[in-house]
C-alpha cells in the first residue's frame, strides 16, 4: 500500500491555510462574570407579557387600538428575545445569523398574512 497521507487532526484542519473556510465551524465560547443583561432582559420580557395580559383582561382600550398596542408589544418582545437570549450579537460572519433570520421573518409573515387572507372568508362567501 502506498504511503497514506497523514491525516490531520481537527485543530490542524481549522488552522490549515487551505481550509480557512472551516474556521467558522471551530467552537468558540463567550463567558461573562455576571449575566446582568440576561436578568434585565428576563424582567423586561415578563413586563411585556403581563402588560399585554393586563391590557386585554381589563379592556382598557377599544379593540383596534388594543390590537395595535399588543402587536407593538409583541414586536418588542421578539426583538428582546433575539437580542438578549438568542446570541444575535455574538456572530463572527454575518451570513449564518442573517440568512436564517430573514427566512424566519419571511415564513412568519407569510403564515400570518396568508392566515388573514384565508380567514377573511367569514365576511365574504356565505
Amino acid at each position: 500500500m502506498s504511503e497514506a497521507p497523514k491525516a490531520m487532526t481537527a485543530e490542524e484542519a481549522y488552522h490549515n491555510e487551505n481550509d480557512k473556510v472551516l474556521r467558522f465551524l471551530e467552537p468558540r465560547f463567550h463567558e461573562e462574570k455576571f449575566p446582568s443583561i440576561q436578568i434585565l432582559g428576563y424582567i423586561g420580557s415578563l413586563i411585556l407579557t403581563f402588560g399585554a395580559y393586563f391590557l386585554v383582561m381589563n379592556h382598557v382600550l377599544p379593540p383596534v387600538a388594543l390590537l395595535s398596542v399588543i402587536l407593538i408589544l409583541a414586536v418588542f418582545q421578539a426583538a428582546l428575545q433575539l437580542g438578549v437570549f438568542m446570541h444575535i450579537r455574538e456572530g463572527r460572519g454575518l451570513a449564518w445569523q442573517l440568512i436564517p433570520l430573514y427566512f424566519v421573518f419571511f415564513v412568519a409573515l407569510g403564515m400570518v398574512a396568508m392566515s388573514i387572507w384565508i380567514m377573511l372568508f367569514k365576511s365574504g362567501v356565505s
Partner: peptide
Amino acid sequence: SYGTWVHHFFTMGAGPAV
C-alpha cells in the same frame, strides 16, 4: 410545504381564490 396547508380544509369554503 409551508404554502399548502389549506388543502386539508378546502371544504371550509374560504372562497375560490384561496
